[in-house]
Simulated scan of single mutants.
Amino acid sequence: MFTIGLTDHLEGPPDRPSGEIFGEVADLVQLADRLGVRYAWFSEHHAHAHQGHLPTPLLLALHLAGQTQRIRLGTAIICLNLHHPLDVAEQVAVADVLTTGRMAVGFGSGSTPEESALFGSVVADDRERQTRFSEALRVIRSAWSGDWSGNVPHAFSVPPHRTLPVPAADLPGRCWVAVNSLGSARIAGDLGFNILFSHLRTPEQYRDYCAAYRAAGGEGLVAANRPVFVGPDDATAFARAEPALRTLWRRFRQEGKIPAETTEPANPEDLCGHPINFIVGGPETVARKLCELHEQSPFDVANVEVRWAGLSHERVCDSLRRLMEDVVPRIANAKSLTGRMPR
């Protein structure tokens, strides 16, 4: 069986107070904790890129640790090309000590050119960006060991010193790398991190990335991502989700993820295809589709995104309740699912 995680980009209109969005997400994560969701991850965005209101996801994760009991909290992702990795390593170590081992932090190499420009960071070609990303992750792992020997990559030369605090030894095994290419899959495998996938990717891409990850020595967990909305039945679910589906579909067309000349489908079910890859339906349908995705490319965590423009907070919370109370038991009873229970 796989477990459930949440990712939220803290999206909202630019003129909406950020505190309202933070409050809704806090309410959602507290509900997720009570329902038994395993993870909650938050994304880093600057200057309202991707409509995000949260530039410092680790702060939100730490804040919500004080409002929850069991759920593991973290980032999906911290963009390492915008930060010095030693600073990131120290912040994550402090957060993990304060939360007694509940951090599950994700790292990624990318951000939009607009966000990079804010920090004076040049978006390099893929090879250079991945090399720097790999070096940054090595810096983080070395810092967590508590003893900085000085034998570090040239891009992040730091004098020898003792790094404090020293987090729990299992912290690297609780951390994740966002994988959107074969290169990042190999980096994650080589360095021993778990891997997170985007909902923009197909099952075929998931399989290719997993193969590269395992070939590089990766033995960790795999989290597949999908937007999900659960209603009492298929018809009601599509009726409730249609405004969100159309808003997201139009946004993707505007962003170039869907060709500009593509005609918007009249049938809301047709809006759910690639690259949106949105799973909508009643409990039976959502359970079946998640099981089918698992059979196509096995994973340990179904990382779902439930908050979307066009859905009220009440509808989002109702969908999450149905996911955990009606969908998850159906998945647990599916004889076709086997695998490890995630850490």
Score class of each variant (00 low, 15 high):
1 M>W: 12
8 D>H: 01
10 L>E: 01
12 G>E: 02
16 R>M: 14
18 S>C: 05
21 I>F: 05
25 V>M: 09
29 V>K: 00
29 V>G: 09
30 Q>K: 08
31 L>Y: 05
32 A>I: 07
33 D>A: 07
34 R>H: 09
34 R>F: 07
36 G>D: 02
37 V>Y: 10
40 A>T: 07
43 S>L: 12
45 H>G: 10
47 A>C: 10
48 H>Y: 04
48 H>D: 03
49 A>K: 13
49 A>Q: 12
50 H>E: 15
50 H>S: 14
53 H>E: 08
62 L>R: 01
67 Q>E: 14
71 I>D: 00
71 I>H: 01
72 R>I: 11
72 R>V: 08
73 L>M: 13
77 I>E: 00
78 I>S: 00
80 L>F: 02
85 P>A: 05
87 D>Q: 12
92 V>E: 08
93 A>G: 05
93 A>R: 03
94 V>P: 00
96 D>W: 04
97 V>F: 06
98 L>Q: 12
98 L>T: 06
98 L>F: 10
99 T>V: 08
104 A>G: 01
106 G>N: 01
106 G>V: 00
111 S>P: 09
117 A>L: 11
117 A>Y: 05
117 A>F: 08
120 G>N: 07
126 D>Y: 14
130 Q>P: 05
133 F>D: 04
137 L>S: 02
139 V>N: 01
145 S>P: 00
147 D>K: 05
147 D>V: 06
149 S>M: 04
151 N>C: 13
151 N>I: 09
154 H>C: 12
158 V>L: 02
164 L>W: 12
166 V>D: 08
167 P>Y: 09
170 D>K: 03
170 D>Y: 10
172 P>E: 02
174 R>Q: 07
176 W>G: 00
179 V>P: 03
180 N>E: 12
182 L>W: 13
185 A>M: 12
187 I>S: 11
188 A>C: 14
193 F>E: 01
195 I>M: 07
197 F>S: 10
199 H>Q: 07
201 R>T: 04
207 R>C: 10
210 C>D: 11
211 A>G: 11
212 A>M: 06
214 R>C: 08
215 A>T: 12
216 A>K: 13
217 G>H: 10
226 R>F: 03
230 V>S: 11
230 V>L: 08
232 P>V: 10
235 A>Q: 13
237 A>N: 08
242 E>R: 07
244 A>C: 07
245 L>V: 14
246 R>I: 13
247 T>G: 06
247 T>H: 14
252 F>K: 04
259 P>E: 09
260 A>S: 09
260 A>E: 05
261 E>S: 15
263 T>V: 02
268 P>D: 08
268 P>G: 06
272 C>M: 15
278 F>E: 14
279 I>C: 13
279 I>Q: 04
279 I>H: 02
281 G>Q: 06
286 V>D: 01
286 V>G: 01
286 V>L: 04
288 R>F: 05
290 L>I: 13
295 E>H: 15
296 Q>F: 11
298 P>A: 00
302 A>R: 03
305 E>F: 01
307 R>W: 01
308 W>F: 09
310 G>W: 00
313 H>I: 06
314 E>H: 04
320 L>R: 06
321 R>Y: 02
322 R>P: 14
323 L>K: 04
324 M>V: 10
325 E>K: 01
326 D>M: 09
330 R>Y: 06
332 A>D: 15
335 K>R: 15
337 L>Y: 03
338 T>G: 14
340 R>E: 13
